[in-house]
């Protein structure tokens, strides 16, 4: 099947944007799963480490924001 014309170009771009968000989402999820579990465990021991725990927690999540930015660039900027 050949991809021709504006409509299929948009479709391919949309798939690309979807993949960008989806795959980074999975990646961030896998990263945060481990960090989150450990952070919650550590916090039950000592409530005061919330801030540090949160910093660790959100580090992998940056990747999904990058994915979102890439998706937005694909859809609106390119």
């Amino acid at each position: 099947m050949a991809f021709e014309g504006e409509a299929s170009e948009l479709g391919i771009a949309a798939i690309g944007a979807g993949l960008a968000v989806g795959l980074t989402g999975i990646g961030a999820g896998m990263g945060e799963k481990d960090v989150g579990a450990a952070a919650v465990g550590a916090m039950t021991e000592d409530r005061s480490i919330f801030g540090t725990a949160m910093i660790f927690m959100v580090i992998p999540e940056t990747i999904v924001i990058f994915g979102l930015v890439v998706a937005i660039i694909i859809l609106f900027v390119l």
Partner: peptide
């Protein structure tokens, strides 16, 4: 570079 790009979330979250 990652730190700088991290601020793109300001726009990205607003847009989402």
């Amino acid at each position: 570079l990652g730190t700088i790009l991290s601020y793109a979330r300001l726009a990205a979250i607003g847009m989402s």
